[in-house]
Design a protein around this nucleic acid. Structure first.
Lengths: 147, 147
DNA sequence: TTTGTATCCTACTAATCCGATAGGATAATA
DNA sequence: TATTATCCTATCGGATTAGTAGGATACAAA
């Protein structure tokens, strides 16, 4: 069970965009630099965020990206789905061969885990993450100041 | 994010063993049949359960497998670890490059998900699963009776 | 208008992982 | 002795994935 890198990078990227959405927007190449991701690879990640309508490029090429919508309404699950279509820990969750008919305790158990994970992903909004991130950064600045 | 089949099959197999541990034990080939898993493939799964000390083959070849220990003390996480060494949704959880130093909100978030999943896995014991399974089977029998 | 630069879009590749099969050794039972 | 179940290792095809590459497009500054 592993999270793919696109989801990881994607969340980091959209947090950075969300943190600067009030201003002019963020350039892709700047994200690549601060997040230390190959700009070419970020190409694909940005593209997926855009096609999921999570970000917009407001004024042409050099205007930078902004969040498309209220950060309090965009959850981590929304971001997750932009890169994973949906969460299915085990295949038989999609067809109705099991789980729905509740054939065995094991599958019920994995179904429960699936729901559990989705609930967690839905519980955090981009607004929450932005707040946490700025707290972290303030802390870092403080430490830097004392050193 | 996917669960591998060994973990899926493994849990189903150990539930079946746990359900018959009081009696004579369960033969591998019988598990293969009832769970509809290739017996050759089950070879590997049983081997991993054994090397994790979760099951034992008490009296030689034809005696069948039994649970090694109290089903109330064996959690789903224990079974999971027999097939996955440990849960690390993202790589940097293992090295201390992040998460411990709390560099970014995204990684804290994934850490949290990781813990969340482990908590869920630890919350269910084999005893719970056995009870659920027998309830399901009783229900099925009842339905069969009325048909 | 030209040049540079950022985004956009598609294809590709190398590597890794994974599910499953195969073959044969070992040991217990009949 | 013959059979059968477990044990053990090797292998293979396929799928996925992280990341690279190349070039098209479009905008802005010179």
């Amino acid at each position: 069970m592993k999270l793919n890198t696109k989801t990881r990078y994607g969340l980091r990227a959209i947090i950075e965009i969300a943190m600067n959405s009030s201003e002019h927007g963020v350039l892709q190449k700047d994200i690549a630099q601060t997040q230390n991701i190959s700009n070419k690879y970020l190409d694909q990640i940005i593209a997926e965020l855009k096609s999921a309508d999570l970000i917009v490029n407001t004024g042409g090429k050099k205007s930078g990206y902004k969040l498309n919508g209220d950060p309090k309404k965009i959850t981590a699950y929304t971001v997750f789905k932009a890169f994973n279509s949906s969460l299915q820990l085990i295949d038989c969750l999609s067809n109705n061969e099991c789980c729905k008919t509740k054939l065995c305790a094991a599958q019920q158990f994995w179904c429960g885990l699936n729901d559990h994970i989705i609930t967690y992903l839905q519980s955090k909004t981009l607004h929450d993450l932005v707040q946490e991130q700025s707290k972290i950064q303030k802390n870092n600045d403080l430490v830097m100041f004392y050193i």
